[in-house]
Design a protein around this nucleic acid. Structure first.
Length: 298
DNA sequence: GAAGCGTGGGC
DNA sequence: TGCCCAAGCTT
């Protein structure tokens, strides 16, 4: 994949970066005063979560816990509760763990290299690169779902939007596709993401507004439909996922420990509710108390 | 590499 | 209405 395709030229870099200068959103974590901690929080919250839902929670967290030390001093259950309905609540727990590590090993600061960032819980290749780039101005290779889709269409001419982890070929191509100059490269990272988020969207791309539509291999090929293997949709109704969500919702909404009797209606079958409760305890999202009661971790 | 992990909006 | 999708990570 990508091997036979030409790299973006400096002119193409310029067009996308210029488009971003005009059309990029003023997201709060893009403000100069957001700081590395603000950027870090935003990147974790945005994992698999629409930004419109992230923004209010991000403001709340930053006001309540303006530094890693402030979050580390809180109970993990407070983080889980303040996470609200963002989804994947293990992220809240990992943010709390990461804040603790920042205090213990990094002087209370967000580490400023992708290697150290990658070592934090809940931080993978994307988040490490994004924080290094957006918080510290390092020209890391940022590859998220938007970047993958834009490059696949623009360069390769394919409609593929696989949900798997980026392949080695994709990451290597993304690296070669970046501008060489450092500042241009850091803008490019956010600009391509933004293009994917606003124009080159998964369904119903707005090619009429795209600054590089005339160069886009996919557009020039007539925007062929995806023809790869079918992607497996996530099942939801009746899954452990749903029941875990219902259990946590109950524990978030009530500010005291709950009994099994109060939790059993989280799912249709007691055996499933118990299994999910066990898995939540194993994940550290729920704390069992004596007397068969449960609460968010203290 | 695949599967599991939340939640809700849009088409 | 149901399905797809959203700044992924971990096991």
């Amino acid at each position: 994949m990508y091997a036979a395709h030409p790299l973006p030229t400096a002119a193409l870099h310029q067009r996308i970066n210029d488009w971003y200068a005009w059309h990029g959103r003023d997201l709060p974590w893009r403000a100069r005063d957001a700081g590395p901690w603000g950027v870090y929080l935003s990147e974790v919250m945005a994992q698999q979560t629409p930004l419109s839902r992230v923004e209010p929670v991000w403001r709340e967290w930053l006001q309540r816990w303006p530094t890693p030390a402030a979050l580390a001093a809180a109970a993990p259950g407070d983080a889980v509760r303040a996470w609200g309905r963002l989804g994947y609540p293990r992220r809240a727990l990992r943010l709390h763990e990461a804040a603790t590590i920042m205090v213990e090993r990094h002087g209370g600061a967000v580490p400023d290299t992708s290697e150290e960032l990658l070592a934090l819980p809940g931080v993978g290749a994307y988040t490490a690169a994004a924080v290094a780039c957006f918080a510290f101005g390092l020209p890391e290779v940022v590859v998220d779902t938007n970047v993958r889709r834009v490059l696949a269409r623009l360069i390769e001419g394919s409609a593929q939007s696989s949900r798997a982890t980026p392949s080695r070929a994709e990451s290597e191509f993304a690296a070669r596709a970046m501008p060489r100059e450092r500042h241009t490269a850091t803008v490019w990272n956010v600009a391509v993401m933004e293009l994917g988020a606003l124009v080159c969207v998964a369904r119903g791309p707005r090619c009429g507004q795209c600054p590089v539509a005339d160069l886009c291999a996919w557009n020039l090929a007539g925007r062929p439909a995806y023809d790869g293997p079918a992607r497996r949709g996530q099942t939801w109704k009746g899954t452990d996922r749903q029941v875990r969500g219902e259990l946590l919702r109950r524990l978030r909404d009530r500010h005291h420990a709950l009994t099994l009797r109060e939790l059993r209606d989280a799912g249709p079958q007691d055996v499933q509710v118990l299994r999910c409760l066990d898995s939540l305890v194993a994940d550290g999202l729920v704390e069992p108390l004596t007397g068969g009661r449960f609460q968010l971790p203290s």
